[in-house]
Design a binder for these strands. Sequence first.
DNA 1: AATATACTGCAACGTTGTTGCATTAACAAA
DNA 2: TTTGTTAATGCAACAACGTTGCAGTATATT
Lengths: 126, 126
Amino acid sequence: MGVIRKTKTVEVLLNEFNKRAVAISAKNLIKQFQTSFNKTTIYRVLDKLEEDGVLHSFLGKDGLKWYAKCKGCSASEHNDLHPHFQCLNCGKVDCLSESVKLPEIPNRKIKVSQLLIQGTCDTCYL
Amino acid sequence: MGVIRKTKTVEVLLNEFNKRAVAISAKNLIKQFQTSFNKTTIYRVLDKLEEDGVLHSFLGKDGLKWYAKCKGCSASEHNDLHPHFQCLNCGKVDCLSESVKLPEIPNRKIKVSQLLIQGTCDTCYL
DNA sequence: AATATACTGCAACGTTGTTGCATTAACAAA
DNA sequence: TTTGTTAATGCAACAACGTTGCAGTATATT
């Protein structure tokens, strides 16, 4: 379970998430590191980092998988219930710190929820 | 533009959405009607019906595209801001009528939002 | 240094959805 | 009803994102 060995791929990817504060899509990472790492490896490392509670994942605009650093998650518990904002212009995704109040749903048991807000970000906002 | 001609495909698909009250994925429709219609046709008809404000679409669990009947939408305006609930056990998706209160986001312009709640539905809830 | 096994790269594949193009069918007008 | 325009369809091929199997490599442990 989780990341066991400290490999080059893990080091480089983690560094990337630490450097940038925003979420990054698997697609972007693959493009960025295509000369260094195979896409299969990147997918697998991201999986592991998520299992480990280091990253959390969610689906963005076109069903693409995005990852961002977790704050206060562990391998046993993922509490990534914050919403995400994706800019329809530049594609950038931010984690929002505000929590969402889920509607009341009778007779159903909620396991996870995902709120994706789309619009224009501060940089692209004219 | 939207749907112009009353074809067999449009008729059958619309009938399906009227018969069942839940959301249906493109994948399911293609599987269900693979003997009658080509998948390309189904994708295109769904697109048109959405443009027309008859259906609205959203992304479910694995990035799959789901469609459901709109209430009070038109070609000019889609007000499909309600959340969806997907059962992790049987895969069924329901539209929830409750509206969601979006968090305050400074310096950004919200265009659309999508809240997907996942868990166990009433039928699968033990 | 030797060993066990986690990690990697490659190639091939799977699934969902899209595109181009020739053919067919819906609708309007004569 | 027949004709003509053009929207809708089916087919095949493609595109994108992601997964799988397997042989070879690197990491950590002894």
